[in-house]
Amino acid sequence: MGERREAPSRLTAAFPADRAALITYLMAGYPDRETSLASLRAATRAGADVIELGVPFGDPLADGPVIAGAAKVAREQAGGFGLAESIALAAELIADSESAHMPPLVLMTYLNPLMRFGLPRAAEAVRVAGIAGVIVPDMPPEAAGPWLAVSAGLDTIFLAAPTSTDERLAVVAATSVGFLYCVSATGVTGERAEMAEGLEVLVARIKAHTELPIAVGFGVSTPEQAAEVSRIADGVIVGSAIVKRQCDSAEVEGFVRSLRVAMDGS
């Protein structure tokens, strides 16, 4: 109905006023359905403020080897894990955790699985599952019209990059709902030894265009880096470093807890 902001965003609300939010990315169906569910629950228990659930895709343009490799394993298991299976997994996790604390869940998927599913049908399935929003890395604001037209009630998060001009930052900020995803460095997802210089400047440039919380991702891989980023941004997104541990939910729980501790102590 064109009133996408009518209800307060669950994602925006998940960013606490007094500290940075921790957003944990896990790959749906990796290494198998049950283990990924256990790891998702572990991340929730360990203090994730937002869960980002990756949909396995065969041509993950924005992802580095860890996430691309996990997607391949998930896709190649019997039956194949794709968008439908990922949404069902999210629905189970959300329904399950209703009584306990369940952070809002955002789905990270490439555009073609949504298109193949049918955009209206995909939006409906995502909504019904209780998912709060989507991140579609190969759908820039200019290409988002068809999706935004059918996704009322869902937040769509767009990406800002170090290469974005101020003009583009204004477009990205004006189109994004829920929060804004700041790509910390040029390149694909994956761990980096050092965070890019100039991140503080980039976050400040984005801040000039929006009131939305700004979460920083791509390359945040250690508790020290998470703490460093939490001093600059409203949220810290950790992906590859968690997916790397995703085969063992206990390891995920310990790692996410260590991120939380480092961030809260900073």
């Binding site: 343009l61 924005a62 555009l111 890395p137 190969d138 759908m139 820039p140 200019e142 290409a143 767009f158 990406l159 800002a160 990059a161 170090p162 290469t163 974005s164 001009t165 583009r168 990205v172 790509v183 040029t186 390149g187």
Partner: peptide, 12 residues
Amino acid sequence: GGTFVPETVIPA
């Protein structure tokens, strides 16, 4: 056609 790429390369 169109432009369906990550934000990083849009300015380029």
